[in-house]
């Protein structure tokens, strides 16, 4: 695998990068950053939707409350992304903002903002089919947090 940096996306807070996209032989990965775990989860979701479409093309027209649970924090991150992948695949919703309202080591509550997929307005870049446990990492990174997730496409 080569870990080339394809692009950086600057989060709303301006200074710190929110995520990076990395290559994996058959698939693609994301590295998400956050000052806290909540921001990390939000940035990982942003990274996911930046792979699927152009995030600027998505407007906040609807919101959805989500609750996700899992065994531990690492797998919670995988489940969180899998839930969003599912919502896009079945309900065809694109999201571009995530309010993480509560987050424990195995439970997450969030409000997700976005709109229904419109083939005229939104260009779909790749079909992401699953978030995997392969090379999954979620660690402290200086003052904040960093996570790596490989996605099956």
């Amino acid at each position: 695998m080569e870990m080339s940096l394809l692009f950086l996306y600057n989060g709303l807070r301006g200074m710190k990068k929110a995520f990076e996209i990395i290559d994996h032989t058959a698939d693609v990965g994301i590295i998400a950053y956050g000052a806290d775990v909540e921001e990390l989860f939000s940035n990982a979701a942003l990274a996911l939707f930046s792979l699927i479409t152009e995030p600027e093309s998505v407007e906040e027209k609807l919101h959805l409350d989500l609750e996700v649970s899992s065994e531990d924090r690492d797998s919670l991150l995988v489940e969180w992304l899998n839930e969003l992948i599912y919502l896009f695949d079945v309900k065809h919703i694109l999201f571009n903002r995530f309010d993480i309202e509560s987050l424990t080591h195995n439970e997450l509550k969030a409000t997700c903002y976005g709109e229904d997929f419109d083939p005229i307005k939104h260009k779909i870049k790749i079909g992401v089919k699953a978030a995997t446990y392969h090379m999954l990492k979620l660690d402290k990174d200086g003052d904040g947090y960093k996570a790596q997730i490989i996605l099956d496409i």
Partner: peptide
């Protein structure tokens, strides 16, 4: 069998 990643 893939040799290059999609990005590459």
């Amino acid at each position: 069998g893939r040799m290059l990643s999609r990005g590459a």
